[in-house]
């Protein structure tokens, strides 16, 4: 039986509700963080191995593209951590009221972005 009803599967025109946005970004940031693990281990290993290694890591961080990558990584980390803490709060039945839930989701989303911008400021001024 075919029913005529409006159907919209265009992902670009669908406006995600705030909790859905925070949730999918939690997932996206998690995958980003997983993929970056080997790079982080290389940086840790190189910087500890020798003074030359340490200096090369410090020098690499001066590169604008590396700074941009660090900024993105910083956001992924902060968003994932904040959204995770929100999960832990929900597990303890904290902030389940609609108004509180919305506020907490806003804090997660904008808190991560604002703190990332602050870190960006430090990266580019250093």
């Amino acid at each position: 039986m075919q029913k005529k009803r409006p159907r919209n599967l265009n992902l670009i025109s669908i406006r995600l509700p705030l909790p859905a946005l925070v949730s999918i970004l939690h997932r996206v940031s998690g995958v980003i963080l997983f993929l970056i693990i080997p790079a982080l281990l290389i940086v840790l290993q190189t910087s500890l191995a020798s003074p030359d290694g340490f200096n090369s890591v410090v020098a690499a961080m001066d590169h604008p593209i590396v700074k941009l990558l660090l900024l993105g990584l910083c956001w992924a980390f902060l968003h994932h951590m904040f959204a995770g803490v929100r999960h832990l709060m929900s597990d303890m039945s904290f902030g389940l009221e609609l108004r509180q839930a919305r506020l907490i989701n806003k804090v997660v989303l904008w808190g991560a972005i604002t703190l990332s911008i602050a870190v960006g400021g430090i990266l580019w001024s250093a």
């Binding site: 500890l48 020798s50 290694g53």
Partner: peptide, 9 residues
């Protein structure tokens, strides 16, 4: 510097 970094680690 590397020395302090290594020490902390």
């Amino acid at each position: 510097d590397h020395a302090t970094w290594k020490q902390v680690a």
